[in-house]
C-alpha cells in the first residue's frame, strides 16, 4: 500500500470495448453476471495482484446483475471508482459495491428502454427500412453507422461520467435531467409512432360500394382519340385536366374510409393489437393470426 494504484485511461478503454459483450453469457440464473465480471477484468487486473484478492473481486462481480445493456456503462464507471478506492484501502465492503450496482440498475433500465428501444431504434429503423424497401442501399448503411455512432459514444461518455462522479452519481441521477430525457424521448417516440402507424400499417378493403357512370365529358372518351402516339399524348393531357380514365366511377369501401382520414383502419388495428397484448395474448399468436386473416379475407374478396 505504498503508493496509490489508479485505473488508467487505457484500462477504461478496454472496459468500454469489453462492455460490448456484456450480454454474451446471459443466463436465467444471474442474467448478465458473467459478462459483467468479464467486462471489469482490465480494471480488476490493474487493482489486485494476489490470487486471494483477485478471487474475491471476481466472486463479488459474479453476483446477479441485469440492466439495459447500454445503461450498464455508467454503473461500470461508478463500480470502477469504488473498486479503486477499495484497493487503495478505503473501507468499502462487498455489500456497498453490490448495493450501488443493484440500486442503479433498476432506474437506469427504466431510462434505457424508452430512449433506445422505443425511440431511437424505431426512428432509425423506420427510416432505414423505408429506404431499403425502395431498393436504396443507403438504408442499411445509415442504420449501421448512426446506431453504432450513437451507441459507442453513449457507452464511452456515460462510463467516464460514472467513473468521475463515483458514488456521488446517485445524487446526480435522481435530479431532473434523467426524467427530462426520458420524457422528451417518450414524446418524440409517441409522435413518430403515430406517423408510422398511419404510413406503414396497411389495411385495404377492396369491396366495391358504388359503381356509377361518370357524366359525359368527365371521362376520357377513348374511341374519339386519334390513334398512335398523338392519342396517348392527348389522353395524358386530358387526364392531367382531371378527367377520369374510365367510364364508370368505382368507389371501394377503402375510398370511403379514406375520406374520414387515411389510415383509420390501421389505427383501429393497432389499438386492437394493444388490447390483445394487454390481455396477455402472445405477440406471436397475434402475428400468425393476422396472416391467417389476410389469407382468408383475400380469398373471400374482402381485401
Amino acid at each position: 500500500m505504498a503508493e496509490e494504484i489508479h485505473i488508467t485511461k487505457g484500462d477504461r478503454i478496454k472496459v468500454w470495448w469489453r462492455s460490448t459483450f456484456l450480454q454474451g453469457s446471459w443466463n436465467y440464473e444471474r442474467m448478465q453476471n458473467g459478462g459483467w465480471a468479464y467486462t471489469l477484468i482490465p480494471a480488476l487486473k490493474r487493482l489486485y495482484h494476489t490470487k486471494e484478492d483477485r478471487a474475491a473481486a471476481l466472486k463479488r462481480h459474479l453476483e446477479f446483475f441485469n440492466t439495459h445493456p447500454y445503461l450498464a456503462s455508467p454503473i461500470l464507471g461508478v463500480t470502477m471508482a469504488l473498486e479503486e478506492e477499495r484497493a487503495n484501502g478505503a473501507p468499502i465492503d462487498d455489500k456497498a459495491i453490490q448495493g450501488v450496482k443493484v440500486g442503479m440498475m433498476g432506474p437506469l433500465a427504466g431510462v434505457g428502454d424508452p430512449v433506445f428501444w422505443f425511440t431511437v431504434k424505431p426512428i432509425i429503423g423506420a427510416l432505414a427500412a423505408s429506404l431499403a424497401m425502395a431498393g436504396n442501399l443507403m438504408g442499411p448503411i445509415l442504420y449501421f453507422v448512426l446506431w453504432n455512432a450513437i451507441r459507442m459514444a453513449f457507452l464511452w461518455y456515460t462510463q467516464e461520467f460514472g467513473y468521475k462522479a463515483g458514488s456521488k452519481i446517485t445524487e446526480d441521477l435522481s435530479g431532473g435531467l434523467l426524467q427530462e430525457v426520458t420524457k422528451g424521448a417518450t414524446i418524440l417516440g409517441m409522435f413518430i409512432l403515430g406517423s408510422l402507424v398511419n404510413r406503414w400499417v396497411s389495411v385495404k378493403f377492396t369491396p366495391v360500394v358504388s359503381d356509377v357512370p361518370n357524366q359525359k365529358g368527365a371521362y376520357i372518351d377513348w374511341s374519339s382519340l386519334p390513334s398512335g402516339k398523338s392519342g396517348i399524348q392527348k389522353a395524358l393531357e386530358l387526364q392531367s385536366q382531371g378527367l377520369s380514365l374510365t367510364k364508370n366511377k368505382v368507389t371501394t369501401l377503402q375510398d370511403n374510409l379514406d375520406q374520414l382520414i387515411p389510415g383509420l383502419m390501421g389505427l383501429l388495428l393497432t389499438l386492437f393489437c394493444m388490447w390483445l397484448l394487454k390481455k396477455k395474448v402472445s405477440p406471436i399468436i397475434i402475428i400468425l393470426g393476422l396472416f391467417v386473416v389476410g389469407v382468408v379475407f383475400h380469398v373471400i374478396g374482402l381485401m
Binding site: L193, S202, L269
Partner: peptide, 27 residues
C-alpha cells in the same frame, strides 16, 4: 391466393410491433 393473402397479412402484422411499443410508452 396464398402468397397474395400473406402479403396482405404482412401489411397488417406491422401493427403488432407498434402496439408493443405503444403499450410500453403510453401515458
Amino acid at each position: 391466393w396464398l402468397t397474395k393473402g400473406l402479403g396482405i397479412g404482412g401489411g397488417m402484422v406491422v401493427a403488432v410491433g407498434y402496439a408493443m411499443v405503444i403499450n410500453m410508452m403510453a401515458t
